[in-house]
Simulated assay, not measured.
Amino acid sequence: MARMIPDNEAKEILVLYYSQHGATRQMAQLIARGVEQAGLTARLRTVPPVSATCEATAPAIPDSGAPYATHADLEECIGIAVGSPTRFGNMTAAMKYFWDGTSPLWMKHALAGKPAALFTSTGTLHGGQEATLLTMMVPLLHHGMVLVGLPYSEPELTSTQSGGTPYGASHHAGVAGELPISEHERKLCIALGKRLALTARRLNA
C-alpha cells in the first residue's frame, strides 16, 4: 500500500496533463481548483511532446506553464489526476511515453493504494472520450491505484450536452479547439478535483 502521509507533511494532489492546443490545460486548472476547494494543494505538472521515434522534442524546462513531471511528483503526492487529449481512443504518445517510463515505481509499489482520476478532451463530440478514459485507466490499475470517477449525484452529468462521463471529466473542444469549456463541463472538472481530494484525504486519515 502507499505510504501514509503524516499530518505534519504537506498533502498535495498531482494534476498531470498534456495539452497541445490548451483545452486539456484549462481542464487541469479547473480540476486543481476543485482540489483546493476541498482543502488540499494542487501540484500542476505536464509532460514534453515526443517525436515519432518517441524521443523528447522539447527543452528540459518548459518556456512557460507547468514544469515537466518527474517520478518524485508521483511519489510525493497523495492522489493523481491524469489528463490527455484523445488520440484514436487513447492517450497521446507524450503521456504514454511518460507512463511507460514508470516501471521503477511499479517495481517498488510506490503508487499502490493512491487514488487517481482521469480527464480528456476531443475535437469531435463522439471522438472517443469514454474510450480514452477507459484505456488511460490501464497503467494506473497496473500500479495498483484506486480509481475515482464522477457519480450521477453530480447533476451536470445528466444535463450536459457536450462533455462529461462517469469515467472522468471530458470536454468537446472542436476540431480546431475553438469551443470553450461549457458550464457543465467546468462544474464537472471542479467536482472531479474535489472528489479526488476528498478520497485522498480519507485514505490518508
Rank of each mutant, 00 (worst) to 15 (best):
H142Y: 14
M91W: 04
N204V: 12
A169P: 11
T132L: 02
I13C: 13
P139M: 01
E130K: 00
P85D: 11
G174P: 13
S121K: 08
P115S: 06
E55T: 12
G83A: 03
R25K: 15
P59G: 15
V175H: 05
A10D: 15
Y152L: 05
L157I: 07
T199S: 13
A94F: 07
T135F: 05
R25V: 09
V35F: 09
S121I: 05
T158F: 06
T199H: 07
A56E: 12
K96H: 14
A10P: 15
L30K: 02
L40H: 10
V35L: 12
L203M: 13
T124Y: 06
A200D: 05
L150D: 03
R45G: 04
M136F: 07
E130M: 02
L40T: 09
L111E: 00
H172C: 12
E178T: 12
I5V: 15
Y17F: 15
Q29V: 10
T122Q: 00
Y18R: 07
T53Y: 06
M4G: 14
W106T: 01
A173F: 01
G89D: 09
R3V: 15
T124H: 07
G164E: 01
A38W: 03
G193E: 04
T199R: 08
A197L: 00
A116D: 05
A93Y: 09
M27S: 12
T122A: 10
G164W: 00
K108E: 05
A28T: 07
L118T: 08
L157E: 07
P155N: 01
A200P: 05
Y17R: 10
A72F: 03
D100I: 08
P139R: 01
P48M: 02
E130D: 06
S121D: 09
T70R: 03
E130N: 01
R201K: 15
L141V: 14
K11N: 09
A38V: 08
G34V: 02
H172R: 10
T124V: 10
T24S: 14
L30E: 02
E55G: 03
A205I: 11
